[in-house]
């Protein structure tokens, strides 16, 4: 009885017309990009403090990450509160392209720190994390996808999954090269490598072949595991930083294990959720009760439509 009441209450909240925004995957992607750009400001500040912002281009991503989320927040509000489409579209395009170029330029700058000197695997390991700036490129593409591809279509959903997959593949490369710099001194350093490889493999399938909702269930389990790996990694990195020598906590954070890097895992899980959620309507319905994700989707969507109609 009590459980039924709770479920009913949750249904009402989910299906409330005032919560219609929460059912809009396009908005979730916009919020994902905005939040990530804002977080990148802090991340870039820590990362480039290692060499005291030695070169002026190192300030470009910092200033971009400070300004872009503010602008995006404004145009998102204009679009979803006041239905002003044009500013959201045009500012989004501008920021999207800028983000893409900043990311690609960043890769070149990072490789220049060592790789272009020697071009060895070792120098790739010890270059500034060369794949990291691609986070900007990925976020830029998300902004473009949200504007150039019709939302709720299968194509849109698969683009989002592709970009989440790109993120996990980036995690695979970064965790491999960063931990190789430690010589994988702790065996636990292999966890994110294996974990991100699994995430990459599982997200690859919906892009290359038709999948069932049961497979998407499995994808979500793999994604939840990624989230746990990220939290565990955050703990390990913080623990290492607190133990290691350093003049101050800031010094330890700047020069030690990057504390925010593992949080990329749960972060990308969010994007993968949006993609999988959006691909669900385009996947054949299973027999009743055979897909957790399908049931949850049907439950929320049906109720929302029922309440909207009612």
């Amino acid at each position: 009885m009590g459980t039924n009441n709770v479920l009913a209450a949750v249904r009402r909240v989910v299906a409330d017309p005032r919560m219609s925004w929460a059912h809009d995957p396009q908005l979730w992607v916009e919020l994902f990009v905005t939040m990530n750009l804002a977080i990148l400001a802090a991340d870039i500040y820590i990362a480039h403090s290692v060499n005291h912002f030695q070169k002026w281009p190192e300030y470009i991503p910092l200033y971009f990450s400070i300004c872009a989320p503010v602008l995006l927040a404004i145009v998102i509000a204009l679009r979803w509160i006041w239905n002003l489409l044009a500013p959201w579209r045009d500012i989004g395009y501008l920021l999207g392209w800028l983000s893409i170029f900043i990311g690609l330029g960043g890769v070149l700058y990072h490789l220049e720190s060592r790789f272009f000197l020697d071009r060895t695997l070792k120098s790739l390991t010890y270059a500034a994390p060369f794949a990291a700036p691609l986070a900007y490129t990925g976020l830029g593409f998300l902004l473009l996808v949200n504007r150039m591809v019709e939302v709720r279509t299968s194509e849109w959903a698969r683009w989002v999954i592709l970009l989440a997959l790109g993120g996990f593949f980036g995690n695979f490369v970064l965790s491999l090269s960063d931990h190789a710099a430690n010589g994988f001194f702790a065996h636990t350093e292999w966890i994110p490598v294996i974990s991100s490889a699994l995430a990459t493999g599982f997200l690859l399938v919906p892009l290359v072949m038709p999948v069932t909702r049961r497979y998407l269930d499995l994808c979500m389990v793999v994604m939840l595991a990624q989230g746990a790996v990220g939290v565990l990694g955050f703990w390990f990195h913080m623990q290492a930083n607190l133990i290691e020598p350093g003049a101050s906590l800031w010094d330890k954070l700047v020069n030690g294990a990057p504390p925010m890097a593992p949080l990329l895992f749960p972060n990308l899980v969010g994007l993968a959720f949006v993609g999988v959620w959006a691909v669900l309507p385009h996947v054949p319905e299973p027999e009743s009760g055979q897909s957790w994700l399908g049931v949850a989707y049907a439950w929320a969507e049906t109720e929302r439509q029922w309440f909207a109609a009612g």
Binding site: A197, L198, A199, T200, G201, F202, L204, V205, M209, Y215
Partner: peptide, 8 residues
């Protein structure tokens, strides 16, 4: 599942 596991 096979493609996912093998590629991973």
């Amino acid at each position: 599942v096979f493609i996912a596991v093998v590629s991973a």
